[in-house]
Design a protein around this nucleic acid. Structure first.
Length: 267
DNA sequence: AGCCTGCCCTGCGAGC
DNA sequence: TGCTCGCAGGGCAGGC
Protein backbone atom coordinates (compact mmCIF):
# COMPACT_ATOMS: atom_id res chain seq x y z
CA UNK A 1 0.00 0.00 0.00
CA UNK A 2 2.84 2.39 0.76
CA UNK A 3 3.23 4.81 -2.12
CA UNK A 4 -0.05 3.73 -3.68
CA UNK A 5 -3.14 5.89 -4.14
CA UNK A 6 -6.54 4.89 -2.80
CA UNK A 7 -8.53 5.14 -6.02
CA UNK A 8 -11.78 3.89 -4.53
CA UNK A 9 -13.28 3.34 -1.10
CA UNK A 10 -16.54 1.63 -0.25
CA UNK A 11 -18.19 1.35 3.14
CA UNK A 12 -20.99 -1.18 2.93
CA UNK A 13 -22.21 -0.70 6.48
CA UNK A 14 -21.34 2.07 8.93
CA UNK A 15 -22.17 0.26 12.17
CA UNK A 16 -18.88 -1.31 13.17
CA UNK A 17 -17.73 -1.23 16.81
CA UNK A 18 -18.00 2.52 16.41
CA UNK A 19 -19.77 4.28 13.54
CA UNK A 20 -17.52 5.16 10.64
CA UNK A 21 -16.60 8.87 10.62
CA UNK A 22 -18.55 11.31 8.42
CA UNK A 23 -17.75 11.31 4.70
CA UNK A 24 -15.49 8.31 5.23
CA UNK A 25 -15.29 7.33 1.56
CA UNK A 26 -14.70 10.84 0.29
CA UNK A 27 -11.88 11.47 2.77
CA UNK A 28 -10.07 8.34 1.56
CA UNK A 29 -10.50 8.65 -2.18
CA UNK A 30 -7.50 10.11 -3.97
CA UNK A 31 -5.25 9.95 -0.93
CA UNK A 32 -1.74 8.57 -1.26
CA UNK A 33 -0.51 6.21 1.44
CA UNK A 34 2.61 7.72 3.02
CA UNK A 35 3.28 5.03 5.62
CA UNK A 36 1.84 2.00 7.39
CA UNK A 37 2.56 1.55 11.05
CA UNK A 38 1.25 -0.22 14.11
CA UNK A 39 0.66 1.08 17.63
CA UNK A 40 -0.58 -1.46 20.18
CA UNK A 41 -3.37 -3.33 18.34
CA UNK A 42 -4.12 -0.40 16.04
CA UNK A 43 -3.03 -0.24 12.42
CA UNK A 44 -2.14 3.26 11.29
CA UNK A 45 -2.23 4.26 7.65
CA UNK A 46 -0.82 7.75 7.14
CA UNK A 47 -2.40 9.56 4.19
CA UNK A 48 -1.24 12.44 2.02
CA UNK A 49 -4.38 14.36 3.04
CA UNK A 50 -3.02 15.06 6.51
CA UNK A 51 -5.23 12.43 8.06
CA UNK A 52 -4.37 8.96 9.34
CA UNK A 53 -6.66 5.98 8.89
CA UNK A 54 -6.86 4.14 12.22
CA UNK A 55 -7.91 0.51 12.00
CA UNK A 56 -8.61 -2.14 14.62
CA UNK A 57 -9.44 -5.78 13.85
CA UNK A 58 -11.27 -6.49 17.11
CA UNK A 59 -11.69 -10.24 17.60
CA UNK A 60 -12.69 -11.43 14.16
CA UNK A 61 -11.54 -8.79 11.70
CA UNK A 62 -9.30 -9.56 8.76
CA UNK A 63 -7.91 -7.94 5.67
CA UNK A 64 -7.56 -9.80 2.42
CA UNK A 65 -5.67 -8.57 -0.62
CA UNK A 66 -6.77 -9.51 -4.10
CA UNK A 67 -5.53 -8.60 -7.53
CA UNK A 68 -1.81 -8.03 -7.10
CA UNK A 69 -0.82 -11.59 -7.90
CA UNK A 70 -0.25 -12.39 -4.24
CA UNK A 71 -3.77 -13.53 -3.49
CA UNK A 72 -2.79 -17.06 -2.52
CA UNK A 73 -5.15 -18.31 0.12
CA UNK A 74 -4.88 -21.30 2.38
CA UNK A 75 -7.19 -24.05 1.19
CA UNK A 76 -9.41 -23.57 4.21
CA UNK A 77 -9.65 -19.86 3.60
CA UNK A 78 -13.21 -18.61 3.82
CA UNK A 79 -14.62 -15.15 4.14
CA UNK A 80 -18.34 -14.68 4.08
CA UNK A 81 -18.82 -11.75 1.67
CA UNK A 82 -21.75 -10.54 3.79
CA UNK A 83 -19.13 -9.36 6.27
CA UNK A 84 -16.97 -7.41 3.82
CA UNK A 85 -17.69 -4.06 5.47
CA UNK A 86 -15.06 -1.83 3.87
CA UNK A 87 -13.18 -2.22 0.58
CA UNK A 88 -10.28 -0.11 -0.63
CA UNK A 89 -8.87 -0.13 -4.13
CA UNK A 90 -5.22 0.93 -4.19
CA UNK A 91 -3.16 1.61 -7.26
CA UNK A 92 0.58 2.12 -7.40
CA UNK A 93 3.89 0.85 -8.78
CA UNK A 94 3.09 -2.67 -7.52
CA UNK A 95 -0.16 -2.70 -9.52
CA UNK A 96 -3.77 -2.42 -8.50
CA UNK A 97 -5.27 -4.35 -5.62
CA UNK A 98 -8.51 -4.55 -3.70
CA UNK A 99 -8.25 -4.73 0.06
CA UNK A 100 -11.34 -6.05 1.83
CA UNK A 101 -12.00 -5.57 5.51
CA UNK A 102 -14.11 -8.52 6.68
CA UNK A 103 -15.35 -8.74 10.26
CA UNK A 104 -18.23 -11.05 11.26
CA UNK A 105 -18.51 -9.84 14.85
CA UNK A 106 -17.94 -6.17 14.02
CA UNK A 107 -15.84 -5.58 17.16
CA UNK A 108 -13.29 -3.90 14.93
CA UNK A 109 -13.55 -0.40 13.51
CA UNK A 110 -11.98 2.30 11.37
CA UNK A 111 -11.56 5.96 12.12
CA UNK A 112 -9.83 9.00 10.67
CA UNK A 113 -7.79 11.45 12.74
CA UNK A 114 -5.49 14.36 11.88
CA UNK A 115 -1.96 12.97 11.69
CA UNK A 116 -0.59 15.95 13.62
CA UNK A 117 -2.88 15.17 16.55
CA UNK A 118 -2.68 11.38 16.33
CA UNK A 119 -1.03 10.93 19.71
CA UNK A 120 -3.92 12.70 21.42
CA UNK A 121 -6.65 10.74 19.64
CA UNK A 122 -8.97 9.00 22.14
CA UNK A 123 -7.95 5.59 20.79
CA UNK A 124 -4.24 6.11 21.28
CA UNK A 125 -3.74 8.68 24.02
CA UNK A 126 -3.75 6.45 27.10
CA UNK A 127 -1.70 3.57 25.74
CA UNK A 128 1.26 2.19 27.66
CA UNK A 129 4.65 1.33 26.15
CA UNK A 130 5.23 -1.08 23.29
CA UNK A 131 6.35 -4.32 24.94
CA UNK A 132 9.12 -4.86 22.37
CA UNK A 133 10.26 -1.24 22.46
CA UNK A 134 13.29 0.23 24.18
CA UNK A 135 11.29 2.15 26.75
CA UNK A 136 9.64 -0.95 28.19
CA UNK A 137 11.85 -2.11 31.04
CA UNK A 138 11.38 -4.31 34.10
CA UNK A 139 11.69 -1.21 36.27
CA UNK A 140 8.92 0.67 34.51
CA UNK A 141 6.71 -2.43 34.51
CA UNK A 142 7.13 -2.72 38.27
CA UNK A 143 6.47 0.99 38.63
CA UNK A 144 3.17 0.82 36.71
CA UNK A 145 2.03 -2.24 38.67
CA UNK A 146 2.95 -0.72 42.02
CA UNK A 147 -0.07 -0.13 44.24
CA UNK A 148 -2.44 -2.01 41.94
CA UNK A 149 -4.98 -4.19 43.72
CA UNK A 150 -6.14 -5.84 40.50
CA UNK A 151 -4.93 -9.36 39.70
CA UNK A 152 -1.86 -9.70 37.48
CA UNK A 153 -4.02 -11.03 34.64
CA UNK A 154 -6.26 -7.95 34.56
CA UNK A 155 -3.31 -5.57 34.91
CA UNK A 156 -1.53 -7.06 31.89
CA UNK A 157 -4.70 -6.92 29.78
CA UNK A 158 -4.93 -3.22 30.66
CA UNK A 159 -3.50 -1.49 27.60
CA UNK A 160 -2.40 1.47 29.74
CA UNK A 161 0.14 -0.76 31.51
CA UNK A 162 1.59 -2.44 28.41
CA UNK A 163 0.10 -1.95 24.98
CA UNK A 164 -0.75 -4.85 22.75
CA UNK A 165 -1.06 -7.92 24.97
CA UNK A 166 -4.24 -9.96 24.58
CA UNK A 167 -5.69 -12.92 26.42
CA UNK A 168 -3.45 -15.58 24.85
CA UNK A 169 -0.14 -13.85 25.41
CA UNK A 170 -0.99 -12.70 28.94
CA UNK A 171 -1.74 -16.30 29.95
CA UNK A 172 1.42 -17.55 28.28
CA UNK A 173 3.66 -14.80 29.68
CA UNK A 174 2.40 -15.35 33.23
CA UNK A 175 3.08 -19.07 32.94
CA UNK A 176 6.59 -18.51 31.65
CA UNK A 177 7.23 -16.05 34.48
CA UNK A 178 5.87 -18.47 37.11
CA UNK A 179 3.36 -15.88 38.31
CA UNK A 180 -0.22 -16.71 39.24
CA UNK A 181 -2.80 -14.77 37.21
CA UNK A 182 -4.54 -14.11 40.55
CA UNK A 183 -1.52 -12.58 42.24
CA UNK A 184 -2.09 -8.99 43.25
CA UNK A 185 -0.35 -6.92 40.56
CA UNK A 186 1.13 -4.57 43.16
CA UNK A 187 3.21 -7.42 44.61
CA UNK A 188 5.14 -7.87 41.38
CA UNK A 189 8.49 -6.13 41.77
CA UNK A 190 12.20 -6.79 41.70
CA UNK A 191 13.20 -10.23 40.42
CA UNK A 192 9.57 -11.15 39.76
CA UNK A 193 9.09 -8.09 37.60
CA UNK A 194 12.26 -8.94 35.71
CA UNK A 195 10.98 -12.46 35.05
CA UNK A 196 7.63 -11.11 33.86
CA UNK A 197 9.25 -8.49 31.65
CA UNK A 198 11.47 -11.14 30.06
CA UNK A 199 8.58 -13.57 29.62
CA UNK A 200 6.42 -10.95 27.88
CA UNK A 201 9.14 -10.15 25.39
CA UNK A 202 10.06 -13.76 24.83
CA UNK A 203 6.54 -15.00 24.20
CA UNK A 204 5.81 -12.16 21.77
CA UNK A 205 9.05 -12.65 19.87
CA UNK A 206 8.45 -16.38 19.56
CA UNK A 207 4.84 -15.86 18.47
CA UNK A 208 5.81 -13.30 15.83
CA UNK A 209 8.51 -15.64 14.55
CA UNK A 210 5.84 -18.36 14.27
CA UNK A 211 3.50 -16.10 12.30
CA UNK A 212 1.04 -15.66 15.17
CA UNK A 213 -1.56 -18.00 16.62
CA UNK A 214 -4.26 -19.46 14.37
CA UNK A 215 -7.05 -20.55 16.71
CA UNK A 216 -9.73 -20.77 14.08
CA UNK A 217 -9.70 -17.98 11.58
CA UNK A 218 -6.50 -15.99 11.99
CA UNK A 219 -4.29 -16.02 8.91
CA UNK A 220 -1.76 -13.71 7.34
CA UNK A 221 -3.06 -11.53 4.51
CA UNK A 222 -1.95 -14.16 2.00
CA UNK A 223 -4.00 -16.79 3.84
CA UNK A 224 -1.05 -18.56 5.46
CA UNK A 225 -1.59 -19.84 9.00
CA UNK A 226 0.41 -18.98 12.08
CA UNK A 227 1.67 -21.90 14.15
CA UNK A 228 2.39 -20.47 17.60
CA UNK A 229 -0.75 -22.26 18.86
CA UNK A 230 1.35 -25.43 18.84
CA UNK A 231 3.69 -23.77 21.36
CA UNK A 232 0.98 -22.83 23.88
CA UNK A 233 1.97 -24.10 27.29
CA UNK A 234 -1.30 -23.29 29.08
CA UNK A 235 -3.72 -21.41 26.80
CA UNK A 236 -6.67 -23.60 25.71
CA UNK A 237 -5.09 -26.58 27.50
CA UNK A 238 -7.49 -27.09 30.40
CA UNK A 239 -7.09 -30.52 31.98
CA UNK A 240 -3.91 -31.32 30.07
CA UNK A 241 -0.57 -31.78 31.85
CA UNK A 242 1.58 -28.76 32.62
CA UNK A 243 4.66 -29.01 30.39
CA UNK A 244 6.87 -28.17 33.38
CA UNK A 245 5.47 -30.29 36.24
CA UNK A 246 2.74 -32.48 34.80
CA UNK A 247 -0.04 -31.12 37.01
CA UNK A 248 -3.42 -30.56 35.38
CA UNK A 249 -3.84 -27.12 33.84
CA UNK A 250 -6.70 -25.16 35.35
CA UNK A 251 -9.14 -22.82 33.65
CA UNK A 252 -11.08 -20.08 35.39
CA UNK A 253 -12.73 -16.80 34.62
CA UNK A 254 -11.16 -13.41 35.31
CA UNK A 255 -12.61 -10.09 34.18
CA UNK A 256 -14.96 -11.98 31.89
CA UNK A 257 -12.16 -13.78 30.06
CA UNK A 258 -10.86 -17.34 30.37
CA UNK A 259 -7.60 -17.76 32.25
CA UNK A 260 -5.42 -20.85 31.90
CA UNK A 261 -2.69 -21.57 34.44
CA UNK A 262 -0.74 -24.21 36.35
CA UNK A 263 -1.44 -23.62 40.04
CA UNK A 264 1.69 -25.58 40.92
CA UNK A 265 4.18 -23.62 38.79
CA UNK A 266 2.53 -20.21 39.06
CA UNK A 267 2.47 -18.52 42.44
C1' DA B 1 -9.48 6.97 40.96
C1' DG B 2 -9.37 2.05 40.51
C1' DC B 3 -11.62 -2.02 39.75
C1' DC B 4 -15.31 -5.06 38.04
C1' DT B 5 -19.36 -6.40 35.37
C1' DG B 6 -21.94 -6.40 31.40
C1' DC B 7 -22.32 -5.63 26.77
C1' DC B 8 -21.50 -4.96 21.79
C1' DC B 9 -21.97 -9.07 17.55
C1' DT B 10 -21.86 -13.44 14.85
C1' DG B 11 -20.45 -18.21 14.42
C1' DC B 12 -19.46 -22.61 15.98
C1' DG B 13 -19.02 -26.79 18.70
C1' DA B 14 -20.83 -29.46 22.57
C1' DG B 15 -24.57 -31.46 24.67
C1' DC B 16 -29.11 -32.92 24.81
C1' DT C 1 -31.44 -33.89 12.86
C1' DG C 2 -32.13 -29.78 15.19
C1' DC C 3 -32.40 -27.07 19.17
C1' DT C 4 -30.09 -24.29 23.01
C1' DC C 5 -26.15 -22.90 25.54
C1' DG C 6 -21.66 -21.28 26.27
C1' DC C 7 -17.76 -19.41 24.60
C1' DA C 8 -14.41 -16.91 21.30
C1' DG C 9 -8.30 -13.51 19.91
C1' DG C 10 -11.07 -6.68 22.48
C1' DG C 11 -12.41 -2.66 24.60
C1' DC C 12 -15.86 0.49 26.16
C1' DA C 13 -19.56 2.57 29.43
C1' DG C 14 -21.40 2.53 33.76
C1' DG C 15 -21.65 1.22 38.50
C1' DC C 16 -19.64 0.55 42.91
Amino acid sequence: MVGAVITDAKARRPDLRFPLPPEFERRLKGARVLSLRRRAKYLLCELSTGETLIMHLGMSGRFTVKGDGRGRFHKDYRADPRHDHVSLVVSGPMGTATIDYNDPRRFGFMDLAPTAKLATSPHLCGLGPEPLGEEFTAEMLAASLKGKAAPAKSALLDQRVVAGLGNIYVCEALFRAGISPRRKAGTIAGLRAMRLHGAIRQVLEEAIEAGGSSLKDFTASDGSLGYFQHSFKVYDREGRPCPACGASIKRYNQAGRSTFACSNCQR
